[in-house]
Amino acid sequence: MSNGTGKFLSSSLGKKFVMGLTGFLLVAFMIVHLLENLSLYVDVDHGSAFIAWVEKLHLLGPFIWVLEFGLALLFGVHVWMALKLTAENRAARPTPYVMKKTFGESTLASRNMFVTGVLILGGLILHLIHFRFSKGLHAPAPADLFARVREVLANPIWAGFYVVFGILVGIHVSHGFRSAFQSFGANHPRINCCVRRCSVALGVILALGFASFPIMALISWR
């Protein structure tokens, strides 16, 4: 890493840029993930489409490890930057206001990015334990994975957990997506309205999408 790049990455603006970039890529991943999940609806009882999808992934062979590693890196960088930024932000106001109102485009989502982020991280770890590492270091076979999905989501507590998880992801993205545009410098009257709407829409789609499977499971798999 050259000195210039290091300086860029350690600066406030650089960190925000990385935050936005990793966020974007993670959103892209989640869209693919959601599409994969949607294949569950094709064959609710046997999950044939879902299994076929996972099997295709397995065809990638060792390359899937590269993808997994890349994904983990994205998450890691996103989380690491978030921790640094949040720590800096907290340090920037050591004495809080007795009374502080919020205004501008401050929303529940924007104010609680760290909280939703931490919860999502926690949820993600559980999610990985549930599915990715259910058989140890090696990913479970496609058919086993489907069985595991049925098993976990049959439990109303876990189903509820995944509903909340999905909603948190949606809330987080609804601010994050829009925010990343500003961090990249993409702010123009012609696109702002569209970005804002897309951001909310994306959040809603992800939340509804991810939350729909546990609900389906509660209805169909019990």
């Binding site: 340090a91 485009e105 924007s110 500003q182």
Partner: peptide, 16 residues
Amino acid sequence: DAEGFGNCTNEYECEA
């Protein structure tokens, strides 16, 4: 950055 200001979380309270 060196002065200890925080980072932007794009909530535009400043503009308001």
